[in-house]
Design a protein around this nucleic acid. Structure first.
Length: 627
RNA sequence: GGGCCCAUAGCUUAGCAGGAUAGAGCGCUGGCCUUCGGAGCCAGCGACAUGGGUUCGAAUCCCAUUGGGCCCGCCA
């Protein structure tokens, strides 16, 4: 946080000259040669002052130089080609920074930007008919990292999983277990069994025997009415699969507070409430003619940019509701716009303190009515999400609609090489995963494979460790590698998965981050932290200054990543910090240095270690002490 | 046909509310183990899709073109 002291001073001193300018155009310069902060204000306002930018800069510098003595952390001001460059007194900042870090430790970097804000974060949301694949994992890692960041910045965060226990994919499984007589029990995990074997098998049979599709329709109806043995079986399957999915999330380090079952959106009248509201506002109506006769629809022309599309069906002619309709009811609940409430009960059998919606539960309002509702959903659903948001805006205004965030990300696809590893011969460079066709990588399988590679390395490097220790370490390293790989790529970009390419254990990777952290731990283990000498008069070298500056900015980076909802910003910061530390490590000895350098460097390494650990925790990477 | 997203070295990418020399990793070439852990470091090669526009200044903003992905169902 100490960087902000410097920044405040720079703003203050600049205002001495530019009394009436609100924007100071401060930025972090591309090189240390230009100081720690620079302002381009002279370019912007030169005209107003009737001068050329550089003339103005020189004049400003001259005047501000007279005031510089009153400021603690500004060492020097420079006017260069129109820029005003401000140099931080790193020597003064360094002790403050190190003290703050060693005092706050795992609290270092926290801020209050979220104080009093209730935020719902919904992620994963996989259909409960299969094991999670790496596409879901991107969703889970983004959502979980957001949750960690927002908690750290003092938001009141509630994490949700929205599970569709009614969709047609459930009918496929029920069909497989009843009509086709497939066994419910298997040697492999239930989610994997359902997805890899039952679901794929049933879908392949539809082509050969179309009469099965009629059976499927019957099952869908029965599930939809939520009564009878078929519906009960469907729910049982969904429950068992979801339980396994949540285990996979836990393995990735992600946990939930609430499971909201999609069928309960209807059961607890969330849908009805929303439809009533939309009815009253005249936003929906029942179609009386044409191809949508008998459906309750929303006019496409009310949604900007969607004028050319057909109207959207909310209630089908047979009275059942579409996904969009339920999502509207659900969104109204999230934002506190509904009179209906879910009832909840505990599911401690899945995770301690986890709640699920249930007819046997009780009303609990702790998640109802959020200040911000973030739904992590892939980009293919942008259209529906836009309609949903437009509906909220039409019904309640822009301000309310802005509380609803479709946190979009592009899907994970497979490289042709990865696809061929699954026995799928690709005719293009990119192959989209398909649960139906069995073209996907399960998260647990990928982690296991990665873990094996890491284990082999560990056995070689750490011959003295027990099997349990090796196993524990390789698990942590594997999870960190996967999370890093999934968070590293900009969420607007298609992530092309390739085992060798994506899950590197060398270079720019999660493993590199852990390795760097281990290096800091290695030094600290050998250092005697109690016998440090005074380094008040120590003058930092270039690498040390850089590191101190980086450390002093951590809080700002965290706050920025949280408010921009971009965990990737923190990831890049963390990697940069590792790069700088490794350069420092190769160049300067710590334990064998002379005093006071030695004492200073030990404290510096300790601080780097703390900040790296905090960064890793915020991104769900798992720090280890040896590897 | 309409809409959304993407385009930076051979490959994977960072930088994008305009700002100084476009930063990494993989690969390739050549170095660094008597030195705190070589899953590391150092050096070299190598990039802003194309064409316009706005601006003192454009990888960044705007328009067009090209190429790639996605979406447009009484599926979710």
């Amino acid at each position: 946080m100490t960087f902000s002291y410097f920044k405040k001073e720079v703003e203050e001193i600049l205002h001495l000259y530019f009394k009436d300018e609100r924007e100071l155009f401060l930025e972090i310069p591309p090189s240390e040669d230009f100081g720690e902060l620079s302002s381009t204000i002279c370019f912007k306002v030169a005209n107003k002052y009737g001068k050329k930018p550089n003339e103005l800069a020189i004049e400003v510098k001259k005047q501000l130089d007279q005031a510089i003595g009153r400021f603690n952390f500004i060492k020097k001001i420079e006017a260069l080609n129109g820029y005003l460059n401000f140099y931080m007194d790193v020597d003064k900042i360094s002790k403050l920074t190190l003290d703050e870090i060693s005092e706050k430790r795992q609290e270092y970097g926290k801020s209050d930007i979220g104080k009093g804000k209730k935020v719902l974060i919904e992620h994963t949301n996989a259909n409960p008919n299969k094991a999670l694949h790496i596409g879901h994992a991107r969703n889970t890692c983004l959502g979980d990292s957001l949750a960690r960041l927002l908690k750290f910045t003092n938001h009141k965060v509630i994490v949700l999983d929205y599970a569709d226990d009614t969709g047609s994919q459930m009918a496929d499984l029920v069909l497989g277990f009843t009509k086709l007589g497939l066994p419910m029990e298997s040697q492999v995990r239930f989610d994997k069994y359902c997805g890899d074997q039952v679901y794929v098998k049933v879908n392949s049979l539809y082509e050969k025997d179309p009469s099965l599709l009629l059976e499927k329709q019957k099952i869908i109806k029965e599930i939809d009415t939520q009564s009878g043995e078929i519906a009960k079986l469907s729910k049982e399957i969904a429950d068992r699969v979801l339980k396994e999915q949540i285990k996979t999330c836990a393995r990735l380090g992600a946990s939930f507070d609430i499971i909201n079952w999609e069928s309960d959106v209807i059961r607890f009248q969330l849908l009805k409430e929303a439809l009533d509201t939309l009815q009253k506002k005249g936003l929906i109506y029942k179609e009386t003619k044409g191809s949508l006769k008998g459906c309750v629809v929303i006019k496409s022309e009310i949604v900007k940019g969607r004028e050319m599309e057909s109207d959207k069906v909310l209630i089908r002619s047979d009275g059942t509701s579409t996904y969009l309709a339920k999502d509207i009811g659900y969104a109204f609940w999230k934002l506190g716009l509904s009179n209906a409430r879910f009832k909840y009960r505990y599911r401690n059998d899945i995770a301690e303190g986890l709640l699920e919606t249930s007819a046997e539960g009780v009303v609990d309002d702790f998640a109802y009515g959020a200040d911000l509702a973030i739904s992590v959903i892939d980009a293919r659903q942008t259209r529906l999400q836009d309609i949903l948001k437009a509906v909220i805006e039409l019904a309640f205004g822009k301000e309310v609609a802005n509380k609803y965030i479709h946190y979009r990300y592009e899907v994970v696809a497979l490289s042709d090489k990865a696809a061929s590893q699954l026995g799928y011969e690709a005719d293009s460079k990119v192959v989209h995963m398909s649960s139906r066709k069995g073209v996907y990588f399960n998260v647990d399988d990928v982690l296991d494979k990665l873990k094996e590679v890491i284990r082999n390395r560990l056995v070689k490097n750490q011959p003295n460790l027990s099997d349990d220790e090796i196993s524990d370490l390789s698990e942590k390293i594997a999870v960190s590698a996967l999370r890093y790989a999934l968070l590293k790529i900009d969420r607007n970009k298609l992530l092309i998965f390739d085992f060798d390419e994506t899950l590197r254990i060398e270079g720019d990777s999660g493993v590199y981050i852990l390795y760097t952290y281990v290096r800091t731990k290695g030094i600290l283990k050998k250092a005697s932290l109690n016998e440090l000498s005074d380094f008040k008069n120590y003058t930092l070298n270039e690498m040390e200054s850089r590191l101190i500056k980086k450390l002093s900015m951590f809080g700002e980076i965290v706050a920025k990543a949280a408010s921009a909802l971009e965990p990737q910003l923190l990831l890049i910061y963390m990697r940069d910090l590792c790069d700088d530390f490794n350069t420092f490590y190769e160049k300067y000895p710590v334990l064998t240095a002379n005093e006071p350098a030695k004492s200073f460097r030990i404290r510096l390494v300790e601080a780097i270690s703390e900040v790296l650990r905090n960064s890793m925790n915020l991104l769900g990477l798992k720090p280890v002490d040896i590897m």
